[in-house]
Design a protein around this nucleic acid. Structure first.
Length: 491
RNA sequence: GCCCCCAUCGUCUAGUCUGGUCUAGGACACAGGCCUUUCAAGCCUGGUACAUGGGUUCGAAUCCCGUUGGGGGCACCA
């Protein structure tokens, strides 16, 4: 049997990182078994439809490196893959259920339904349809008048959900609602459409969030009603925010697009997501996996049952691991959009600026948690920095006069340097510290403040090379001014 | 309220099915140290966990039951 799994999002906005983690499991399972991964759009709720949502979903999947064998944009033998284009199928199947005695028409008003629900709630009962239209004689509700079609859930017995991960879960049928299958507007509800489509599309395994467990018996009943074999269910845990609640916007980034804009590499995010609820086990402590390794090593049966907290810290670490593994040119390509977005460089990048960037990349590579960090780390190269304050130019145990002399000597040295690069300036600068009888740290501290405006910067000599001789000398001159003014005021 | 799921360091997890090798292993984060022009990276060291009560057993993180805690569901939403 060929494995066929699916991702069936509704086009209501950006895909959520928690749902995407579940998609990762599905995709890995399909690829590992040489199966098919199907993308199906569940747009049966016209009130929540968001116009641009489908391309957002497909872009997100593609960015993360997950392709689909059938679905929008690629077609397939089981289409259409957009539910709103399959309405006639659902209507026909719903009628079929009525004929079989598994469904009935209902024309109860929303007001009546609300009243019933409120009464039940007040009494502490589980709100559910009271069966008002359930046993009406055939034809009592005209097919031509507005109405819904409901599932006729058996009033006794229990329904068993077989789950690959959880085992068998039994539900008392009396607690199951007569679920609406076809809405007044002629659209199916999720429950009807999903069962029909999964069956007709030959889906073999359904992996999805365990928040669906409670509604699964209704689906199992539908399979029984149609006389179809249900797929294999595997309910996987949800992803929570750091406070233990369902992950949401207030926890930080939740849409794939946000992670991309914040400078996460898709390979790192994919790796991280795969580890949210799955681990190789058997004593294997590997955590960094290539896509190919994940496809090979992933085991559906090993998915954890407990929900996992999304740890941004660990994602940052893993993103850093992936960034450090990149070669300079690749990292440069990744970084350019972030420099450009911050307004630090123009696009396309002028040739002479490209040289500066190439100097910078190795300096920042092991300092980046996200690609966007490069902005904060290197902005001083591209923009003006604040005039240094006198305090910042005075390392411990140094007088203003000493500092001034130091700045002047550095200026002279760098002005005369034949090759203005990191390698050429290190030895003479270290010698200068000796000559001035100060510690290298004191010298470099002053220079760092004067040239980068920061107490923390990328390695100094490389930063100076990237900055270039002209700007370097200008900034040293400004530091000299600050020190001279201070001395004059003191005198 | 009713129904369902879950439970090992702060977090992700290994170990649970097939009880003993677990004075519970790894990773992230945190603290200290080394390296060092700052910050990183790297290396070394450290603290922190089997929710709880009862069984079963020679022996339980591992099996059973209760309790507690957390999460989810109860729509003409998916």
């Amino acid at each position: 049997m060929t494995v066929r799994v699916r991702f069936a999002p509704s086009p209501t906005g950006h895909p959520h990182i928690g749902n995407i983690r579940t998609v990762v499991f599905n995709w890995l399972y399909a690829r590992q078994n040489d199966g098919q991964f199907v993308l199906r759009i569940e747009d049966t709720d016209r009130t929540r439809y968001v116009d641009n949502a489908i391309p957002v979903i497909t872009d997100s999947l593609r960015w993360l490196g997950m392709d689909w064998d059938e679905g929008p944009e690629v077609g397939g033998d089981y289409g259409p893959y957009i539910q709103s284009k399959r309405l006639d199928i659902y209507t026909q199947k719903a009628e079929e259920l009525i004929e079989k005695g598994w469904a009935y028409r209902c024309d109860c008003s929303a007001e009546r339904l609300n009243e019933v629900r409120e009464r039940q709630r007040a009494q502490g009962d589980t709100p559910m349809y009271d069966g008002h239209c359930r046993d009406l004689p055939a034809g009592a509700v005209s097919p031509d008048e507005p109405h819904v079609i409901r599932l006729k859930v058996p009033r006794e017995g229990e329904t068993l959900v077989r789950d690959l991960l959880h085992g068998d879960i039994a539900f008392d049928n009396r607690l199951l609602d007569d679920q609406i299958l076809l809405k007044t507007d002629g659209y199916p509800t999720y429950h009807l459409a999903v069962v029909i489509d999964d069956h007709m599309m030959g889906i073999t395994h359904i992996m999805r969030g365990d928040d669906w467990i409670s509604s699964t018996p209704k689906r199992v009943l539908l399979y029984q009603a149609f006389g179809w074999e249900p797929p294999i269910y595997a309910h996987v845990p949800l992803v929570l925010g750091p406070d233990g609640k369902k992950l949401s916007k207030r926890h930080g980034a939740v849409s794939i697009d946000e992670f991309r804009r914040q400078g996460y590499l898709p390979e790192a995010l994919f790796n991280f997501l795969a580890l949210l609820g799955w681990a190789p086990g058997e004593g294997d402590e590997q955590e960094v996996f290539s896509r190919a390794e994940l496809i090979e090593r992933f085991r559906l049966e090993r998915i954890n049952l407990a929900s996992a907290v999304f740890d941004y810290n660990k994602l940052n670490w893993m993103n850093g691991v992936y960034i450090r593994a990149l070669d300079t040119e690749t990292l440069l390509d990744h970084l350019i959009p972030f420099w450009a977005d911050a307004g630090l460089i123009p696009t396309p990048v002028p040739a002479e600026m490209l040289h500066t960037l190439r100097v910078l990349v190795p300096l920042v590579q092991e300092r980046l948690k996200t690609l966007r960090d490069v902005v904060e780390l290197t902005d001083f190269v591209f923009t003006d920095i604040d005039r240094p304050t006198i305090e910042k130019l005075l390392p411990k145990k140094m007088t203003p006069a000493q500092s001034l002399e130091t700045v002047r000597q550095v200026q002279a040295l760098l002005a005369d340097l034949v090759h203005f690069d990191a390698e050429s300036m290190e030895a003479p600068l270290r010698q200068l510290a000796k000559d001035l009888d100060i510690k290298p740290g004191q010298l470099f501290g002053i220079m760092r403040e004067a040239l980068t405006g920061k107490q923390v910067s990328p390695p100094l000599f490389g930063s100076i090379e990237a900055l270039g001789r002209e700007k370097t000398l200008q900034r040293l001159e400004r530091a000299e001014d600050v020190l001279m003014e201070h001395l004059k005021r003191q005198a």
